[in-house]
Computed example of a mutant assay.
Amino acid sequence: MPDREGSAVHKKLYRIYYTTYYDSEHEEVKRKLKEKYGVEPADIKSSVLPEFRFLELPIAKGGLEKEISELVSSIIGSKYVKVDWIDTGV
């Protein structure tokens, strides 16, 4: 549904950034996120650094940054996980 100016659809989502060299860990992150939140994360691939992972998780509820970060960290074994809440309607 277009917003009042007729532009693209208003989105609310989480962007999740992390690094792993292991595709199996990355697939486990996607599986656990889908299992926990009931939505399929979108996988955006880096053409420059294949170990840099970037997911978009379409969830309308804000405030889950820490929870998502901890879940991803527990799988990849790193505290270097960045989670941003994006609300394009603001």
Rank of each mutant, 00 (worst) to 15 (best):
K34V: 01
K34Y: 07
E35M: 05
E35T: 01
E35D: 13
K36E: 15
Y37A: 04
V39R: 15
V39N: 11
V39T: 09
P41M: 05
P41I: 01
P41G: 05
P41A: 05
A42W: 12
A42G: 04
A42P: 00
D43T: 04
D43H: 14
I44W: 08
I44L: 15
I44K: 10
K45M: 10
K45H: 14
K45V: 07
S46D: 15
S46K: 09
S46M: 10
S46E: 11
S47P: 09
V48F: 14
V48A: 14
V48W: 11
L49Q: 08
L49A: 09
P50E: 14
E51A: 12
E51R: 13
F52W: 13
F52Y: 15
R53D: 02
R53W: 03
R53G: 04
F54V: 02
F54K: 11
F54N: 15
E56G: 02
L57K: 09
P58H: 14
P58K: 09
P58I: 00
P58A: 03
I59C: 07
I59H: 11
A60I: 00
A60Y: 04
K61Y: 05
K61E: 15
K61V: 10
K61L: 11
G62I: 00
G63P: 08
G63A: 08
G63C: 08
L64V: 00
E65G: 12
E65R: 08
E67K: 12
I68M: 10
I68K: 09
S69Q: 12
S69Y: 00
S69K: 14
E70T: 00
E70V: 00
L71M: 14
L71F: 01
L71P: 06
V72M: 07
S73H: 04
S73D: 10
S73G: 15
S73K: 02
S74N: 13
S74Y: 01
I75S: 05
I75F: 06
I75V: 04
I76H: 05
I76G: 02
G77C: 06
G77S: 05
S78G: 04
S78D: 13
S78F: 02
S78W: 03
S78I: 00
K79M: 00
K79S: 12
K79W: 00
K79Q: 08
Y80Q: 07
Y80T: 01
V81W: 12
V81M: 10
V81D: 14
K82I: 11
K82Q: 07
V83T: 03
W85Q: 01
W85V: 00
